[in-house]
Design a protein around this nucleic acid. Structure first.
Length: 532
DNA sequence: CACAGTCTTGCCCATAAATA
DNA sequence: TATTTATGGGCAAGACTGTG
């Protein structure tokens, strides 16, 4: 043991100087370490004078990180010193082992810093449960207090700052998040979205050269007053996003043009429609339906409708709306336990699809046919497949028009990135509607400005888009851009893209579910800014 | 040893989120 | 839509630590 102890001592206190381990006792559940400080003289916390005059001593029991599955308890003998300084208000003081204990602290510094990390990552209850698993039980309040007691994050003066709003309680309480666009780190949270608050924040940081914001008036106003020296850039992510909304409204307005034309000579292509236009999940209506619902829900929420109102409007349950609103992409919702399940019927589906198209819609007859081919199970699966999947497909009923959402998505997607049959469908739609053709051209042109950074072409673009009386949403969008012309041109000219800000807003969306109330803001702010 | 300061815990509350 | 569950906030009691 005499050879082992120095190693243990080294293991336990490698980063701590001036501690002597006097004994280590290992039992089933606990490692007890007796230790004492070896420093001769200690500075008084009152006056800073060093003293070596020991008044007495007692034991402290700071908890430490567990070791090899056992609780570690340090029995630390600390000495009280007499402060000899006449003018000092203190008569005695107790020594602290630097880097190991602190005044009033009941944990070692390393346990404390571990718990701080847990608190930042998981906050109160979840953190406490996790700490319990790791053998360092702690109350949730303790974790929250540890996070709250962290020092204020250092003030950063970014060169390029991204500004966006986030909702602490959607529709009720909004705040502002500020991001260093160059380092992609969040640098501050403001408790509201007032121009004054933003202006004051910016005014304290005169080094800012560029503010990257969306086109909300209070941000423009705040940026102008708080950082007059900075160039304002309308963030491209929002520009594109707003254009998308305008485009969809335009398509919706012309949805009459989307009706399938039975007499059209080039209509036969439309029989390819039913093969589902998205790669996931394979050949399932569910995916398309979910995508459309997801987009609708998000559009309505973004337009400021409450979840309850959206639920009413769409005839969906409130919790369904919640699920949709929390999913950033529709793909996150493709998690049903039956999705992508392998069944014995899979091998026969192409045959069933073909027979259905041929006009055989009798599920029993279909089952008899594939049973001949070796399908081992009863007829119920075939019946369900026919009912849920085949009957839902457009073929037997006739081609259906594509949705406004689908068409606007095609228009907003780069042709190269569009699946071949989507390209064909889009072509058919545009051939049928000159207004949508014009819309597509405007979108294409805008996309080029965004990707090629050709902001100088904006005035020309605005002029042509503004006069599209048949596309009022596009016209309105152009007029809005005109009012914020300089910033939009800058946004389309410089490569600063605060889409990065959007990522942080989403992260806040996840964290804020656990945060509310006044004190909650401080906690949220620390977790956003200080978490690794 | 008595007392004061600080930290931890347990309890209840309002509310958001999840579930039926 | 109603009910249940989980969360952080707030408070007070009690434990641990420091001082004289």
């Amino acid at each position: 043991m005499d050879e082992v102890r120095p190693q243990l001592e080294e293991l336990l206190f490698s980063s701590v100087e001036d501690v002597l381990v006097e004994s280590i006792t290992v039992t089933d559940a606990v490692v007890r370490v007796e230790a004492r400080s070896t420093v001769r003289q200690v500075a008084c916390p009152g006056c800073g004078c060093r003293s070596g005059q020991v008044h007495g001593s007692y034991l402290r029991f700071p908890r430490d990180l567990p070791s090899v599955g056992r609780l570690v308890v340090v029995a630390l003998r600390v000495r009280r010193f007499v402060c000899g300084e006449e003018s000092c208000p203190r008569r005695t003081f107790v020594e602290q082992v630097s880097g190991f204990t602190r005044r009033f602290g009941r944990q070692t510094e390393r346990l404390r810093s571990t718990l701080v990390s847990v608190g930042l990552a998981l906050a109160g209850r979840a953190g406490a449960r996790m700490a319990d698993v790791f053998g360092t039980p702690v109350s949730r309040n303790t974790l929250l207090r540890l996070v709250a007691s962290l020092p204020e994050p250092p003030a950063v003066v970014p060169r390029v700052v991204g500004v966006d709003e986030y909702a602490q309680r959607k529709g009720r309480i909004y705040g502002t998040v500020l991001v260093d666009v160059e380092t992609r780190r969040p640098i501050d949270l403001l408790p509201d979205r007032e121009a004054d608050t933003l202006a004051a924040w910016l005014a304290e940081r005169p080094g800012i050269e560029i503010t990257c914001r969306d086109r909300a008036p209070f941000f423009a106003d705040g940026a102008t007053r708080g950082a007059p020296q900075a160039l304002q850039v309308a963030d491209r992510w929002h520009l594109w996003h707003n254009l998308g909304e305008a485009a969809e409204k335009c398509v919706y307005r012309h949805r009459g043009c989307l009706r399938p034309m039975p007499a059209a000579p080039d209509a036969p292509q439309e029989t390819e429609e039913p093969t589902v236009s998205s790669p996931w999940p394979t050949g399932h209506q569910f995916a398309e339906r979910t995508r459309a619902k997801h987009a609708t829900v998000h559009a309505l929420l973004a337009a400021g409708h409450s979840k309850r109102s959206v639920a009413r409007q769409l005839g969906m349950g409130l919790n369904t709306i919640l699920r949709f609103s929390l999913a950033t992409t529709p793909e996150e919702l493709f998690t049903g336990q039956w999705q992508n399940r392998v069944t014995r019927l899979d091998a026969f589906k192409p045959y069933l699809d073909q027979r259905w198209q041929d006009g055989c819609t009798n599920a029993w007859k279909l089952w008899e046919e594939i049973r001949e081919q070796g399908y081992p199970d009863g007829h119920s699966s075939v019946r369900d497949y026919a009912k849920k999947t085949l009957r839902g497909k457009p073929q037997p009923i006739g081609p259906r028009p594509p949705s406004a959402r689908a068409v606007s998505r095609w228009i907003l997607t780069l042709p190269d990135a569009l699946a071949e049959h989507d390209q064909l469908q889009l072509k058919a739609v545009l051939a049928n509607c000159p207004e949508m053709t014009a819309l597509a051209e405007h979108v294409r042109s805008f996309a080029r400005m965004v990707t090629e950074l050709e902001g100088d072409r904006l005035p020309e673009w605005i002029e042509s888009a503004r006069d599209t009386t048949d596309l009022p949403s596009l016209s309105r969008f152009a007029q809005h851009l005109e009012r914020d012309l300089d910033a939009v041109i800058a946004g389309l000219t410089l490569s600063w893209n605060s889409g990065v800000v959007e990522g942080h807003v989403n992260r806040i969306k996840m964290l804020k579910r656990q945060m509310f109330g006044r004190a909650g803001f401080d906690l949220l702010r620390k977790r956003v800014l200080l978490a690794p």
